[in-house]
Computed example of a mutant assay.
Amino acid sequence: MGMPSPLPVRDGVGATRLHVPLTGDWPTIADYMVERFFHLDPERLLVRFDRGEIVARDGRPLRRETPLGAEEFVWYYREPPVEKEIPFTEEILHEDDHLVVIDKPHFLPTTPGGKYLQNSALVRLRNRLGNPELTPIHRLDRATAGLLMFSVRPATRGAYQLLFEDRRVEKVYEAVSARPAGWDPSRFPLVYRTHIEKHRGEVRVQVDDTREPNSETLIDVIDADDRVVHTLLRPHSGKMHQLRVHLAALGLGILHDGFYPELLPEQPDDFSRPLQLLARELRFLDPLTGEERVFTTRRSLQDAPAR
């Protein structure tokens, strides 16, 4: 169980916890934080100490003079960034005493991070449903649309999280890729496996073909025309960017993917060109009731072949 926050959820956003070294070259905790957050105005950060906005584990406000070593963890609320509005709305597909399932639009992050705070699925839903205990059970990339499941209450959260950890959730995705030269549909269906690693500080994952595979996806073709190939994806594992990496390795890089097969310069969001990847279906036996649960997206991929 994680360390409980001494601060309540505010406007749908939980407090941030920061680990502070117990020894070092900083006379005070404030001095450490000024160096740690060098990109912020130092005086603005120190004023937050004066206002009692940075607290210890017991909720006690810390002063700018509090010496290093007095506390190992501190909590504070992130100051809201100036956010660009994500002009798409999540749709609630299912809600009961334990689960909320939504259809997440492209471009909306699952949780707060970076320049997105209120414009995240978690914060939007906490505010919309008035439930500060709402927590995502799994994640979708910001660029990916489709099914996303949230826990309503802590008492039953672990049972649903174990479904994903034990790979007892059947996940189905769709993707649309540019049709490659020499396209040969007879190769499909196929199972693709490789070893994927995420290195700290790198935005893309790395593939190591010398190591035992740790990711696996069953890939089949739904349809194709002279422009694109529409695929059905059933991942057996859940590595970061797995589907994007596997399709790129097969020459089927997903349309509008700025990460794979090559990393493109960062650009502002172009809402007319969403990544053509969709979380289509979730299927599992409910750990509380034993009944089969099946959730299906109502979204579709704009670049899929017309049927």
Rank of each mutant, 00 (worst) to 15 (best):
S237K: 14
S237G: 02
S237P: 01
S237L: 04
G238A: 09
G238N: 05
G238T: 06
G238E: 07
G238M: 08
K239N: 09
K239H: 10
M240S: 14
M240K: 15
M240D: 05
M240F: 13
M240W: 11
H241V: 12
H241F: 09
H241I: 13
Q242H: 09
Q242V: 13
Q242F: 11
Q242D: 10
Q242P: 12
L243V: 14
L243F: 10
L243H: 08
L243R: 01
R244H: 12
R244A: 14
R244C: 14
R244S: 13
V245L: 08
V245D: 05
V245N: 02
V245H: 07
H246R: 02
H246K: 06
H246Y: 03
H246C: 10
H246L: 08
H246N: 06
L247C: 11
L247T: 15
A248S: 14
A248F: 01
A248Q: 04
A249I: 00
A249F: 00
A249R: 11
A249V: 00
A249W: 00
L250A: 07
L250E: 05
L250K: 06
L250Q: 12
G251C: 01
G251W: 01
G251Q: 03
G251L: 04
G251E: 01
G251P: 01
L252W: 05
L252A: 10
L252Q: 05
G253I: 02
G253T: 04
G253V: 06
G253E: 09
G253C: 09
G253Y: 01
I254T: 09
I254P: 01
I254E: 00
I254W: 04
L255V: 15
L255R: 15
L255Y: 00
L255Q: 15
L255A: 12
L255P: 06
H256V: 14
H256P: 05
H256F: 15
H256K: 06
D257G: 12
D257H: 11
D257W: 10
D257F: 12
G258S: 15
G258K: 09
G258Q: 10
G258V: 14
G258A: 15
F259Y: 14
F259Q: 13
F259T: 12
Y260M: 13
Y260D: 12
Y260N: 04
P261H: 00
P261G: 02
P261T: 03
P261W: 00
P261E: 04
E262A: 08
E262N: 00
L263D: 01
L263I: 10
L263K: 13
L264Q: 14
L264T: 13
L264S: 10
L264H: 03
P265T: 07
P265S: 02
E266R: 09
E266T: 07
Q267D: 01
Q267I: 02
Q267V: 13
Q267E: 11
Q267S: 11
Q267N: 00
P268I: 04
P268R: 01
P268F: 02
D269G: 00
D270M: 08
D270H: 08
D270Y: 11
F271C: 02
F271D: 02
F271T: 03
F271H: 11
F271G: 02
